[in-house]
Design a protein around this nucleic acid. Structure first.
Lengths: 208, 208
DNA sequence: CAACACCGACCGACCGGACGGTCGTGTCGT
DNA sequence: ACGACACGACCGTCCGGTCGGTCGGTGTTG
């Protein structure tokens, strides 16, 4: 049971500061003292607002996963074209790198640190998100929109493109997340080969 | 009575065990005691073979980056078709998930823990690898093989697909890394859309 | 072939420091 | 006078790393 959303401003501040520090220095290289200092308070005061370090990770994780899930399910409910939903999913994820800096790294690299029941729930939420996209792709294939042999693998390729961005994307660059999302979506939809002749010949023997 | 493996063998054993533990439990959740136990020795003996925990990370990192770089540059020197080199790069990376389990996670998530000069060199090696692929893509574009507006972004999309695999791929599944590499390469080259009509209409207003 | 020096692999016990977390207390605004 | 917010001082633990020493094998020397 959690306290009712009371010190919401402080809490948001703490989550944002922690996520940024975790992103920059790494989770284990960031002490509770560091987080407190970043918010302008001392450690015991930080513990007045927060139960544990793990709880901050859980907050970061939950904020992200709810944000993403809400948007995705709204679009599915609105019955947007499948290809467009995929485009927007990419944009959602890339956009988070600007609106919630640091959150994605925690989400991808530290979700395993959430123990017990809360960890189970957290991982369930991510699976649900992935599964929704997988179904979208599968339905698109059944409808003849997509050429998909293995929906699971295709989903992994899809998420790989945009999820990987947390490793290199930094806000403030020349390209907005909207532009990047559109670009990746184009590749995912149409590929980069100019013609079939580019693909011929080298299909065999990957073993050597 | 059992003949203790000597010198380099021990070192390889340590690197392999450490990488596997780092992958399973996380780097910071794995103590030097754990690593020692996994090799069947005690901590002081481990330190007889190893300078520091950081050094193990460096070893893991270097093994991987040299392995990848050697293969890639050999293929460039052999003047294989560019599309085929890309296919093989994907297969190299996916293959490492089997031949060097755990190494990729350390490579991606903990390279920032290598400090000072050695960290600089390590990061230079990765950049060189990425840059080689980027040039390959750029040349392919100039040669009319690939349709590429932004080679840098295209490279990120390419690596995203295969690098992300360390998050979900587990050896022993129904699909070999060769099959997955081919599959991802197909998507990267040709996309999944069955026709241009799938792409039309939803190109504007990503802002909302 | 003994006596001895040397050496690499090995380990029990220990150190120093960092870090997550707590306690008791003070200080406001209401 | 009460709760929310703040803090200095402190605790227990864990962990990277070290110290001093044992053991067994391998020359080397008379």
């Amino acid at each position: 049971m959690k306290a009712a959303p009371q010190g919401t401003a402080r809490r948001a501040e703490i989550v944002a500061a922690a996520a940024r520090l975790f992103d920059e220095r790494g989770y284990h290289a960031t002490s509770m003292d560091d987080i407190a200092a970043a918010v302008g308070i001392k450690k015991p005061t930080l513990y007045h607002h927060v139960q544990s370090k793990t709880q901050i990770v859980i907050w970061i994780h939950d904020e992200l996963v709810h944000d993403l899930t809400d948007r995705l399910e709204q679009r599915v409910a609105d019955k947007l074209p499948r290809a467009e939903i995929l485009l927007r999913v990419m944009d959602d994820i890339l956009g988070l790198l600007e609106t919630r800096p640091g959150h994605l790294r925690v989400y991808f690299e530290h979700h395993r640190e959430i123990p017990g029941e809360e960890g189970r729930v957290a991982r369930e939420m991510r699976d649900r998100y992935t599964e929704t996209v997988r179904q979208l792709i599968e339905e698109g294939a059944a409808a003849g929109e997509f050429r998909v042999e293995n929906p699971g693998l295709t989903t992994f390729a899809f998420f790989g493109m945009c999820n990987w961005a947390y490793q290199w994307y930094r806000p403030g660059g020349p390209l907005t997340h909207q532009v990047i999302a559109r670009y990746f979506w184009q590749i995912f939809m149409s590929g980069i080969a100019t013609g079939p002749e580019v693909l011929e010949g080298h299909a065999d023997r990957l073993d050597v």
